[in-house]
Design a protein around this nucleic acid. Structure first.
Lengths: 192, 192
DNA sequence: GTCATTTTGTACAGATCAGTAAAGAATAGG
DNA sequence: CCTATTCTTTACTGATCTGTACAAAATGAC
Protein backbone atom coordinates (compact mmCIF):
# COMPACT_ATOMS: atom_id res chain seq x y z
CA UNK A 1 0.00 0.00 0.00
CA UNK A 2 0.99 3.65 0.19
CA UNK A 3 1.52 6.01 -2.69
CA UNK A 4 2.79 4.18 -5.75
CA UNK A 5 6.10 5.06 -7.37
CA UNK A 6 5.85 7.21 -10.43
CA UNK A 7 8.97 5.73 -11.99
CA UNK A 8 10.39 2.35 -12.81
CA UNK A 9 13.38 1.34 -10.74
CA UNK A 10 14.99 -0.35 -13.70
CA UNK A 11 14.63 2.71 -15.91
CA UNK A 12 16.06 4.96 -13.21
CA UNK A 13 19.01 2.67 -12.58
CA UNK A 14 19.54 2.50 -16.31
CA UNK A 15 19.75 6.27 -16.53
CA UNK A 16 22.09 6.40 -13.54
CA UNK A 17 24.24 3.71 -15.14
CA UNK A 18 24.64 5.78 -18.29
CA UNK A 19 25.72 8.76 -16.23
CA UNK A 20 28.22 6.90 -14.05
CA UNK A 21 29.50 5.29 -17.21
CA UNK A 22 30.11 8.67 -18.81
CA UNK A 23 31.57 10.54 -15.89
CA UNK A 24 32.72 8.02 -13.32
CA UNK A 25 31.60 7.88 -9.72
CA UNK A 26 33.26 10.91 -8.22
CA UNK A 27 32.49 13.37 -10.99
CA UNK A 28 28.82 12.45 -11.04
CA UNK A 29 26.78 14.61 -8.69
CA UNK A 30 23.51 13.72 -7.07
CA UNK A 31 22.01 16.67 -8.92
CA UNK A 32 23.16 15.12 -12.21
CA UNK A 33 21.50 11.90 -11.17
CA UNK A 34 18.23 13.64 -10.37
CA UNK A 35 18.24 15.46 -13.70
CA UNK A 36 19.06 12.39 -15.71
CA UNK A 37 16.67 10.04 -13.97
CA UNK A 38 13.96 12.67 -13.69
CA UNK A 39 13.58 11.93 -9.98
CA UNK A 40 13.51 14.50 -7.22
CA UNK A 41 16.09 14.23 -4.46
CA UNK A 42 13.56 12.79 -2.06
CA UNK A 43 12.53 10.04 -4.43
CA UNK A 44 16.07 9.20 -5.34
CA UNK A 45 17.25 8.88 -1.77
CA UNK A 46 14.09 7.10 -0.73
CA UNK A 47 14.56 4.52 -3.44
CA UNK A 48 18.32 4.02 -3.42
CA UNK A 49 19.62 5.28 -0.11
CA UNK A 50 22.78 6.96 -1.25
CA UNK A 51 24.86 7.88 -4.24
CA UNK A 52 27.14 4.95 -3.58
CA UNK A 53 24.35 2.41 -3.32
CA UNK A 54 22.98 3.68 -6.60
CA UNK A 55 26.44 3.28 -8.07
CA UNK A 56 26.49 -0.34 -6.99
CA UNK A 57 23.04 -0.85 -8.52
CA UNK A 58 24.31 0.72 -11.73
CA UNK A 59 27.26 -1.65 -11.87
CA UNK A 60 24.97 -4.58 -11.24
CA UNK A 61 22.72 -3.40 -14.02
CA UNK A 62 25.69 -3.02 -16.32
CA UNK A 63 26.62 -6.63 -15.63
CA UNK A 64 23.08 -7.80 -16.24
CA UNK A 65 22.77 -6.03 -19.59
CA UNK A 66 26.05 -5.23 -21.30
CA UNK A 67 28.06 -7.92 -19.57
CA UNK A 68 25.54 -10.61 -20.35
CA UNK A 69 25.34 -9.46 -23.96
CA UNK A 70 29.07 -10.03 -24.27
CA UNK A 71 28.85 -13.47 -22.76
CA UNK A 72 25.99 -14.30 -25.12
CA UNK A 73 28.16 -13.25 -28.02
CA UNK A 74 30.74 -15.82 -27.00
CA UNK A 75 28.09 -18.52 -26.96
CA UNK A 76 27.08 -18.07 -30.57
CA UNK A 77 28.00 -20.67 -33.16
CA UNK A 78 31.27 -20.47 -35.04
CA UNK A 79 34.89 -21.35 -34.52
CA UNK A 80 36.54 -20.49 -31.25
CA UNK A 81 38.98 -18.13 -32.89
CA UNK A 82 36.17 -16.31 -34.68
CA UNK A 83 34.16 -15.96 -31.49
CA UNK A 84 37.04 -14.47 -29.57
CA UNK A 85 38.04 -12.25 -32.45
CA UNK A 86 34.48 -10.99 -32.78
CA UNK A 87 34.47 -10.19 -29.09
CA UNK A 88 37.42 -7.87 -29.54
CA UNK A 89 36.33 -6.45 -32.87
CA UNK A 90 32.97 -5.63 -31.38
CA UNK A 91 34.71 -3.72 -28.63
CA UNK A 92 36.77 -1.73 -31.09
CA UNK A 93 33.68 -0.76 -33.05
CA UNK A 94 31.70 0.09 -29.96
CA UNK A 95 34.45 2.02 -28.21
CA UNK A 96 35.50 3.99 -31.24
CA UNK A 97 31.94 4.82 -32.23
CA UNK A 98 31.33 6.24 -28.78
CA UNK A 99 32.31 9.91 -28.74
CA UNK A 100 32.29 9.95 -24.94
CA UNK A 101 34.93 7.23 -24.89
CA UNK A 102 33.22 5.64 -21.93
CA UNK A 103 34.89 2.29 -22.37
CA UNK A 104 33.81 -0.46 -19.97
CA UNK A 105 31.99 0.57 -16.82
CA UNK A 106 33.36 -2.36 -14.84
CA UNK A 107 36.90 -1.54 -15.85
CA UNK A 108 36.36 2.12 -15.04
CA UNK A 109 35.01 1.15 -11.63
CA UNK A 110 38.01 -1.07 -11.07
CA UNK A 111 40.48 1.73 -11.70
CA UNK A 112 38.68 4.62 -10.01
CA UNK A 113 40.00 4.46 -6.50
CA UNK A 114 37.30 6.52 -4.84
CA UNK A 115 34.11 4.58 -4.73
CA UNK A 116 36.14 1.38 -5.00
CA UNK A 117 34.82 -0.05 -1.81
CA UNK A 118 34.85 -3.75 -1.19
CA UNK A 119 31.25 -3.92 -2.43
CA UNK A 120 32.23 -2.41 -5.77
CA UNK A 121 35.38 -4.48 -6.01
CA UNK A 122 33.30 -7.59 -5.47
CA UNK A 123 30.87 -6.70 -8.25
CA UNK A 124 33.72 -5.96 -10.62
CA UNK A 125 35.53 -9.14 -9.66
CA UNK A 126 32.46 -11.15 -10.44
CA UNK A 127 32.18 -9.68 -13.91
CA UNK A 128 35.84 -10.35 -14.50
CA UNK A 129 35.63 -13.97 -13.46
CA UNK A 130 32.44 -14.47 -15.45
CA UNK A 131 34.27 -13.38 -18.57
CA UNK A 132 37.29 -15.47 -17.63
CA UNK A 133 35.13 -18.55 -17.29
CA UNK A 134 33.35 -17.93 -20.58
CA UNK A 135 36.67 -17.59 -22.37
CA UNK A 136 37.98 -20.64 -20.58
CA UNK A 137 35.09 -22.76 -21.80
CA UNK A 138 35.74 -21.64 -25.35
CA UNK A 139 39.43 -22.45 -25.07
CA UNK A 140 38.62 -25.86 -23.73
CA UNK A 141 36.29 -26.49 -26.64
CA UNK A 142 38.91 -25.28 -29.08
CA UNK A 143 41.55 -27.53 -27.61
CA UNK A 144 39.29 -30.55 -27.58
CA UNK A 145 38.24 -30.12 -31.19
CA UNK A 146 41.82 -29.57 -32.24
CA UNK A 147 41.18 -26.03 -33.43
CA UNK A 148 43.64 -24.76 -30.83
CA UNK A 149 46.96 -26.24 -29.79
CA UNK A 150 46.72 -28.24 -26.58
CA UNK A 151 50.24 -27.64 -25.32
CA UNK A 152 49.28 -25.07 -22.69
CA UNK A 153 46.86 -25.05 -19.77
CA UNK A 154 43.49 -23.73 -20.97
CA UNK A 155 43.11 -21.48 -17.94
CA UNK A 156 46.45 -19.84 -18.64
CA UNK A 157 45.50 -19.26 -22.26
CA UNK A 158 42.13 -17.87 -21.24
CA UNK A 159 43.59 -15.54 -18.66
CA UNK A 160 46.19 -14.16 -21.03
CA UNK A 161 43.52 -13.53 -23.62
CA UNK A 162 41.28 -11.86 -21.09
CA UNK A 163 44.14 -9.61 -20.08
CA UNK A 164 44.72 -8.59 -23.66
CA UNK A 165 41.01 -7.88 -23.89
CA UNK A 166 41.07 -5.46 -20.98
CA UNK A 167 44.28 -3.93 -22.22
CA UNK A 168 42.59 -3.34 -25.53
CA UNK A 169 39.84 -1.42 -23.79
CA UNK A 170 42.39 0.68 -21.96
CA UNK A 171 44.23 1.50 -25.17
CA UNK A 172 40.96 2.35 -26.91
CA UNK A 173 40.43 5.04 -24.30
CA UNK A 174 43.23 7.21 -25.55
CA UNK A 175 44.13 6.08 -29.03
CA UNK A 176 42.20 6.60 -32.22
CA UNK A 177 44.60 4.38 -34.12
CA UNK A 178 42.37 1.58 -35.30
CA UNK A 179 45.22 -0.37 -36.81
CA UNK A 180 47.02 -0.48 -33.47
CA UNK A 181 43.90 -1.94 -31.88
CA UNK A 182 43.49 -4.43 -34.71
CA UNK A 183 47.08 -5.53 -34.11
CA UNK A 184 46.13 -6.33 -30.56
CA UNK A 185 43.23 -8.41 -31.77
CA UNK A 186 45.22 -10.36 -34.31
CA UNK A 187 48.10 -10.79 -31.92
CA UNK A 188 45.86 -12.07 -29.16
CA UNK A 189 43.98 -14.41 -31.48
CA UNK A 190 47.20 -15.72 -32.99
CA UNK A 191 48.44 -16.44 -29.47
CA UNK A 192 45.60 -18.86 -28.88
CA UNK B 1 65.03 38.47 -8.22
CA UNK B 2 62.10 38.59 -5.86
CA UNK B 3 61.47 36.40 -2.84
CA UNK B 4 62.87 32.92 -3.35
CA UNK B 5 60.65 29.85 -3.22
CA UNK B 6 60.79 27.95 0.01
CA UNK B 7 60.07 24.65 -1.71
CA UNK B 8 61.41 22.61 -4.57
CA UNK B 9 59.09 22.33 -7.52
CA UNK B 10 60.15 18.74 -8.11
CA UNK B 11 59.46 17.74 -4.53
CA UNK B 12 56.05 19.40 -4.59
CA UNK B 13 55.09 17.77 -7.87
CA UNK B 14 56.29 14.48 -6.48
CA UNK B 15 54.00 14.81 -3.48
CA UNK B 16 51.11 15.82 -5.72
CA UNK B 17 51.82 12.84 -7.94
CA UNK B 18 51.56 10.47 -5.00
CA UNK B 19 48.23 11.96 -4.06
CA UNK B 20 46.72 11.88 -7.56
CA UNK B 21 48.04 8.36 -7.83
CA UNK B 22 46.23 7.30 -4.67
CA UNK B 23 42.93 9.06 -5.16
CA UNK B 24 42.62 9.99 -8.81
CA UNK B 25 42.03 13.47 -10.15
CA UNK B 26 38.47 14.17 -9.14
CA UNK B 27 38.66 12.85 -5.58
CA UNK B 28 41.80 14.83 -4.83
CA UNK B 29 41.00 18.25 -3.40
CA UNK B 30 43.18 21.32 -3.55
CA UNK B 31 43.21 21.21 0.23
CA UNK B 32 44.64 17.69 0.09
CA UNK B 33 47.29 18.95 -2.27
CA UNK B 34 48.22 21.80 0.05
CA UNK B 35 48.46 19.48 3.03
CA UNK B 36 50.51 16.89 1.22
CA UNK B 37 52.90 19.28 -0.47
CA UNK B 38 53.12 21.56 2.55
CA UNK B 39 52.35 24.57 0.38
CA UNK B 40 49.78 27.24 1.12
CA UNK B 41 47.03 27.80 -1.38
CA UNK B 42 48.67 30.96 -2.67
CA UNK B 43 51.97 29.26 -3.27
CA UNK B 44 50.38 26.30 -4.95
CA UNK B 45 48.33 28.40 -7.34
CA UNK B 46 51.20 30.78 -7.94
CA UNK B 47 53.47 27.94 -8.89
CA UNK B 48 51.13 25.63 -10.81
CA UNK B 49 48.15 27.71 -11.90
CA UNK B 50 45.38 25.20 -11.32
CA UNK B 51 44.57 21.77 -10.03
CA UNK B 52 44.45 20.45 -13.55
CA UNK B 53 47.80 21.89 -14.56
CA UNK B 54 49.33 20.32 -11.47
CA UNK B 55 47.72 17.04 -12.48
CA UNK B 56 49.40 17.26 -15.86
CA UNK B 57 52.73 18.00 -14.17
CA UNK B 58 52.19 14.98 -11.94
CA UNK B 59 51.58 12.72 -14.92
CA UNK B 60 54.67 14.07 -16.61
CA UNK B 61 56.65 13.42 -13.47
CA UNK B 62 55.28 9.90 -13.30
CA UNK B 63 56.49 9.31 -16.84
CA UNK B 64 59.91 10.72 -16.04
CA UNK B 65 60.41 8.57 -12.96
CA UNK B 66 58.33 5.40 -12.86
CA UNK B 67 57.84 5.13 -16.58
CA UNK B 68 61.49 5.56 -17.32
CA UNK B 69 62.39 3.02 -14.66
CA UNK B 70 60.24 0.48 -16.45
CA UNK B 71 61.82 1.22 -19.78
CA UNK B 72 65.27 0.92 -18.20
CA UNK B 73 64.29 -2.48 -16.88
CA UNK B 74 63.59 -3.63 -20.41
CA UNK B 75 67.03 -2.47 -21.50
CA UNK B 76 68.92 -4.66 -19.05
CA UNK B 77 70.85 -7.69 -20.26
CA UNK B 78 69.19 -11.08 -20.52
CA UNK B 79 66.98 -12.95 -22.91
CA UNK B 80 63.99 -11.19 -24.42
CA UNK B 81 61.54 -13.56 -22.77
CA UNK B 82 63.15 -13.00 -19.38
CA UNK B 83 63.07 -9.23 -19.77
CA UNK B 84 59.39 -9.17 -20.66
CA UNK B 85 58.55 -11.67 -17.97
CA UNK B 86 60.42 -9.60 -15.40
CA UNK B 87 58.47 -6.54 -16.47
CA UNK B 88 55.23 -8.26 -15.62
CA UNK B 89 56.47 -10.01 -12.51
CA UNK B 90 57.75 -6.69 -11.22
CA UNK B 91 54.31 -5.23 -11.69
CA UNK B 92 52.66 -8.06 -9.79
CA UNK B 93 55.04 -7.63 -6.88
CA UNK B 94 54.69 -3.87 -6.86
CA UNK B 95 50.92 -3.79 -7.24
CA UNK B 96 50.24 -6.48 -4.70
CA UNK B 97 52.64 -5.03 -2.16
CA UNK B 98 50.83 -1.69 -2.42
CA UNK B 99 47.97 -1.64 0.08
CA UNK B 100 46.43 1.38 -1.66
CA UNK B 101 46.17 -0.59 -4.90
CA UNK B 102 47.13 2.49 -6.85
CA UNK B 103 48.15 0.60 -9.94
CA UNK B 104 49.55 2.67 -12.79
CA UNK B 105 48.93 6.40 -12.74
CA UNK B 106 48.94 6.66 -16.53
CA UNK B 107 46.36 3.90 -16.82
CA UNK B 108 44.26 5.49 -14.10
CA UNK B 109 44.42 8.80 -15.90
CA UNK B 110 43.41 7.09 -19.13
CA UNK B 111 40.27 5.60 -17.61
CA UNK B 112 39.15 8.50 -15.41
CA UNK B 113 36.91 10.46 -17.71
CA UNK B 114 36.93 13.70 -15.80
CA UNK B 115 40.27 15.38 -16.09
CA UNK B 116 40.83 13.41 -19.27
CA UNK B 117 41.36 16.47 -21.38
CA UNK B 118 43.27 16.32 -24.59
CA UNK B 119 46.38 17.41 -22.70
CA UNK B 120 46.13 14.46 -20.34
CA UNK B 121 45.23 12.06 -23.13
CA UNK B 122 48.34 13.20 -24.99
CA UNK B 123 50.60 12.60 -22.01
CA UNK B 124 49.12 9.16 -21.47
CA UNK B 125 49.34 8.31 -25.14
CA UNK B 126 53.01 9.18 -25.12
CA UNK B 127 53.70 6.84 -22.24
CA UNK B 128 51.77 4.11 -23.97
CA UNK B 129 53.66 4.46 -27.22
CA UNK B 130 56.99 4.69 -25.40
CA UNK B 131 56.31 1.32 -23.83
CA UNK B 132 55.04 -0.07 -27.12
CA UNK B 133 58.25 0.97 -28.85
CA UNK B 134 60.44 -0.48 -26.10
CA UNK B 135 58.63 -3.79 -26.33
CA UNK B 136 58.80 -3.66 -30.10
CA UNK B 137 62.57 -3.27 -30.04
CA UNK B 138 62.86 -6.27 -27.76
CA UNK B 139 60.64 -8.37 -30.00
CA UNK B 140 62.72 -7.40 -33.01
CA UNK B 141 65.88 -8.42 -31.20
CA UNK B 142 64.31 -11.69 -30.16
CA UNK B 143 63.18 -12.48 -33.67
CA UNK B 144 66.55 -11.62 -35.18
CA UNK B 145 68.47 -13.77 -32.73
CA UNK B 146 66.07 -16.63 -33.23
CA UNK B 147 64.89 -16.59 -29.62
CA UNK B 148 61.37 -15.80 -30.83
CA UNK B 149 59.52 -17.19 -33.80
CA UNK B 150 59.56 -14.84 -36.79
CA UNK B 151 56.25 -15.81 -38.30
CA UNK B 152 54.34 -12.76 -37.09
CA UNK B 153 54.86 -9.02 -37.49
CA UNK B 154 56.93 -7.74 -34.55
CA UNK B 155 54.65 -4.76 -34.06
CA UNK B 156 51.61 -7.00 -33.75
CA UNK B 157 53.38 -9.21 -31.23
CA UNK B 158 54.52 -6.17 -29.26
CA UNK B 159 51.09 -4.60 -29.22
CA UNK B 160 49.40 -7.78 -28.07
CA UNK B 161 51.93 -8.14 -25.27
CA UNK B 162 51.50 -4.53 -24.25
CA UNK B 163 47.77 -5.05 -24.09
CA UNK B 164 48.18 -8.06 -21.84
CA UNK B 165 50.45 -5.93 -19.68
CA UNK B 166 47.81 -3.25 -19.16
CA UNK B 167 45.15 -5.88 -18.68
CA UNK B 168 47.32 -7.39 -15.98
CA UNK B 169 47.40 -4.07 -14.18
CA UNK B 170 43.64 -3.79 -14.40
CA UNK B 171 43.15 -7.26 -12.98
CA UNK B 172 45.63 -6.57 -10.21
CA UNK B 173 43.38 -3.74 -9.09
CA UNK B 174 40.63 -6.04 -7.91
CA UNK B 175 42.07 -9.49 -7.52
CA UNK B 176 44.37 -10.79 -4.86
CA UNK B 177 44.78 -14.07 -6.67
CA UNK B 178 48.46 -14.15 -7.45
CA UNK B 179 48.24 -17.35 -9.43
CA UNK B 180 45.69 -15.80 -11.78
CA UNK B 181 48.10 -12.96 -12.43
CA UNK B 182 50.99 -15.36 -12.92
CA UNK B 183 48.90 -17.20 -15.49
CA UNK B 184 48.61 -13.96 -17.41
CA UNK B 185 52.38 -13.56 -17.32
CA UNK B 186 53.14 -17.07 -18.48
CA UNK B 187 50.41 -16.95 -21.07
CA UNK B 188 51.65 -13.67 -22.48
CA UNK B 189 55.27 -14.77 -22.49
CA UNK B 190 54.41 -18.10 -24.09
CA UNK B 191 52.57 -16.18 -26.81
CA UNK B 192 55.75 -14.42 -27.86
C1' DG C 1 -14.81 8.89 4.25
C1' DT C 2 -10.75 7.84 7.54
C1' DC C 3 -6.44 6.07 8.60
C1' DA C 4 -1.89 4.18 7.95
C1' DT C 5 1.66 4.14 4.68
C1' DT C 6 4.53 5.39 1.04
C1' DT C 7 6.15 8.69 -2.44
C1' DT C 8 6.98 13.37 -3.96
C1' DG C 9 8.60 18.13 -4.05
C1' DT C 10 10.86 21.73 -1.80
C1' DA C 11 13.57 23.90 1.20
C1' DC C 12 17.28 23.54 3.80
C1' DA C 13 21.51 22.10 6.35
C1' DG C 14 26.46 22.09 7.08
C1' DA C 15 30.48 21.10 4.82
C1' DT C 16 33.45 21.53 1.26
C1' DC C 17 34.75 22.84 -3.38
C1' DA C 18 38.32 25.51 -6.73
C1' DG C 19 40.13 29.65 -7.08
C1' DT C 20 41.27 34.74 -5.74
C1' DA C 21 42.40 39.16 -3.38
C1' DA C 22 45.38 41.55 -0.68
C1' DA C 23 48.70 42.50 2.68
C1' DG C 24 53.09 41.22 4.68
C1' DA C 25 57.78 39.05 4.06
C1' DA C 26 61.99 38.04 1.67
C1' DT C 27 65.11 38.73 -1.85
C1' DA C 28 68.38 41.36 -5.78
C1' DG C 29 69.84 45.42 -7.78
C1' DG C 30 70.79 50.14 -7.34
C1' DC D 1 68.51 52.12 2.59
C1' DC D 2 65.06 51.97 -1.14
C1' DT D 3 62.53 49.98 -4.79
C1' DA D 4 60.77 46.47 -7.83
C1' DT D 5 59.63 41.81 -7.82
C1' DT D 6 58.34 37.50 -6.27
C1' DC D 7 56.59 34.41 -2.77
C1' DT D 8 53.77 33.33 1.52
C1' DT D 9 49.87 33.63 4.42
C1' DT D 10 45.27 34.43 5.54
C1' DA D 11 40.77 35.38 4.74
C1' DC D 12 37.32 35.12 1.77
C1' DT D 13 34.32 34.32 -2.24
C1' DG D 14 30.24 32.21 -4.42
C1' DA D 15 29.19 27.91 -5.94
C1' DT D 16 28.33 23.34 -5.22
C1' DC D 17 28.45 19.08 -2.61
C1' DT D 18 25.72 14.93 -0.23
C1' DG D 19 22.19 14.10 2.53
C1' DT D 20 17.87 15.28 5.41
C1' DA D 21 13.45 17.26 7.27
C1' DC D 22 8.89 17.88 6.45
C1' DA D 23 4.58 18.81 4.54
C1' DA D 24 1.54 17.76 0.67
C1' DA D 25 -0.20 14.16 -2.31
C1' DA D 26 -1.57 9.62 -3.58
C1' DT D 27 -2.76 5.11 -2.67
C1' DG D 28 -5.04 0.48 -0.20
C1' DA D 29 -7.51 -1.29 3.72
C1' DC D 30 -11.44 -0.80 6.33
Amino acid sequence: MGRPREFSDAVAVDAAMELFWEKGYEATTTQDLCSRTGLGRGSLYNAFGSKHRLYEAAIRRYADTRGEAQLAMLAEPGSVRDRLRDLMLGVIDADMADPGRRGCLALNAATESSGRTEAVAGLVRRQFTDLEQAILRLVEVGQSTGELASDRPPLQVARAFQSAYYGLRVLAKVTGDRRALLDVVEGAVAAL
